[in-house]
Design a protein around this nucleic acid. Structure first.
Lengths: 184, 184
DNA sequence: ATGAACGTTCAGAATGTTCTAAACATACGG
DNA sequence: CCGTATGTTTAGAACATTCTGAACGTTCAT
């Protein structure tokens, strides 16, 4: 068993650091961050058991958490020739992944805000044509809702620009030699 | 007591919607979102008790949660002339607030990633000059760390651009009549 | 000084999340 | 068909977060 060469030690540092970052990211759990980190510094796919053993977690916990990673397209399940086990590798194209997270997490979130504004306006506006003397207060609310809504729309557009377009030199990741299914 | 006009009903919808959005934002708790929503649609500051009553929460809970809102500069504590109570109002300049959140939350988070890369590199590199025959693997790790690091730096710069500069028409919020310290 | 009006802190209850081990399901080699 | 190897589901334990009411400290009017 290859216990703790200096490279494994480095991996441990990375796993901890990325785990901490993930825990506060609002996107990934700490464990998902740790799994990703472990995979990311590996030049070959790892099996569930290897991951579980490397992170000192139960297989079932790794299994459920890795599903999230695969859904976010941060990891990929790959077949390894002479093994029946599932193996996983980190996705190398971080830009693509980031786009996806922007789309599915942040834009979705900001659209919740937009939807809240719209729904509120509908409630405030069409409840009755002019139920009682509250003209000015109603206008104030309308104004604030419009302000928030247009702001949210602007942010949404901004995220889209950042995500869809190529805002600041997508790092390109020039062909790392991954050797996706190797072994033997 | 002015229980549930159509405007209050609209506020309730808004409070729920923003609460839901906040709960998944990774920045604010649900209750913080609800407090902000309540304040945002009010043309005058509210006291702790008014907030607590409006949201059906204990004063202490509102007290602790509102502190976070004030720290994020989403709400402001204001003095109201003839009352000893603290009063709070929502901040209207959402752009400013968003900048702050970008800075303090997202950029800080991405720098964690950068720091993790750097620390890992230090661990992998200077542990010993060349401890044993693992040349290629070490290079692979170095390469991946550099890829992630430069990506993170690019994203960091992107957030800064989005935040510092004026990316897409900062909605401007043209002078809403707030009547900050009104009453009587 | 005294007491009423406030906001905050704190201990514990209520709720939610994360983790484990065991049961279960599925495929595969004999 | 079996039994073994494997991934997934599930029940509940461990842990964390959120909420409440009571205790506390401060301020202010009397």
């Amino acid at each position: 068993m290859s216990t703790s060469g200096p490279l494994d030690q480095a991996r441990a540092v990375f796993v901890d650091g990325m785990g901490a970052a993930s825990a506060t990211s609002g996107v990934l759990s700490q464990l998902q961050g740790r799994i990703f980190a472990l995979l990311y510094l590996q030049d070959h796919p790892l099996s569930l058991d290897e991951i579980a053993e490397g992170l000192q977690q139960s297989k079932s916990n790794v299994s459920t958490n890795i599903r999230g990673l695969v859904e976010w397209h941060l990891a990929r399940r790959v077949a390894v020739p002479n093994s029946r086990k599932d193996h996983y590798e980190a996705v190398a194209d971080l830009w693509r992944v980031t786009q996806e997270i922007m789309e599915r997490r942040f834009r979705w979130n900001i659209r919740q805000v937009i939807a809240a504004c719209d729904e509120t306006r509908r409630t405030a506006g069409t409840e009755r044509p002019r139920p009682r003397a509250a003209g000015s207060e109603r206008d104030f609310i309308e104004h604030r809702l419009e302000a928030l809504r247009s702001f949210a729309v602007a942010v949404d557009a901004g995220i889209e620009a950042f995500s869809r377009g190529e805002p600041m030199a997508p790092p390109a990741m020039p062909a790392i030699p991954i050797r996706s299914g190797r072994r033997r």
